[in-house]
Amino acid sequence: MDEKIAALREALYALDDQAAVGITRELIDGGLEPQRVLQEGLAEAMLEIGRRWNAGDVFLPEVVAAAEIFKRCNEIVEPALIEAGGHTLGHRVVMATVKGDLHDLGKNMVGAMMKTAGFQVHDLGKDVPTERIVEAVREMEPTIVGLSSLLTTTVPEQRVVIQALEEAGLRGRVKIMVGGAPVTEDWAAEIGADGFAPNAPEAVKVALRLAGSERPEA
């Protein structure tokens, strides 16, 4: 079993989608606790990939590729996990590109990097109405909400989302991070956000700080 879990990790390092999905399915079908598959197989591998990225041995596209494989494997694990009554790992993060804005590349990069730090990421997509973000916060009870916008004309929407969360009585329950090319530290402070990041790697650092934990470094 340990060997198989190790093989799952190796498949992720090798960015071998087929092998990773295959082994995951094998392990779940074979009756191994889904918690173990998730924790020791998938999550541990993502953390290690994060360490390798930090050391400069692995580049961002490789991190994103790994995150996509992680997602596909997790789709197999999660149903079994929920059935077994286990809980998902890591702080939940809800991400969205605000209403009126179709750019999501940065958000996708952040999402991938967040996974390497052990976060559970729920991506609502792009051009997301404020009400949907509020609803997602209510339902999923995330630790962090990440808002992205690339246009100066949609950046103001970030303020609108924060106000909506306040009005819904939810503001105090989440930490809010903002990002996107026109977004600055000053803007984040002005609208009462909890954090700002200029790129994906920085976003992870900020998120870890906000969630109150440190990235386990090698």
Partner: peptide, 13 residues
Amino acid sequence: HYLAQAHTLRNMR
């Protein structure tokens, strides 16, 4: 997006 494509990983360096 192209970030995770095998082609990207193969050629980006």
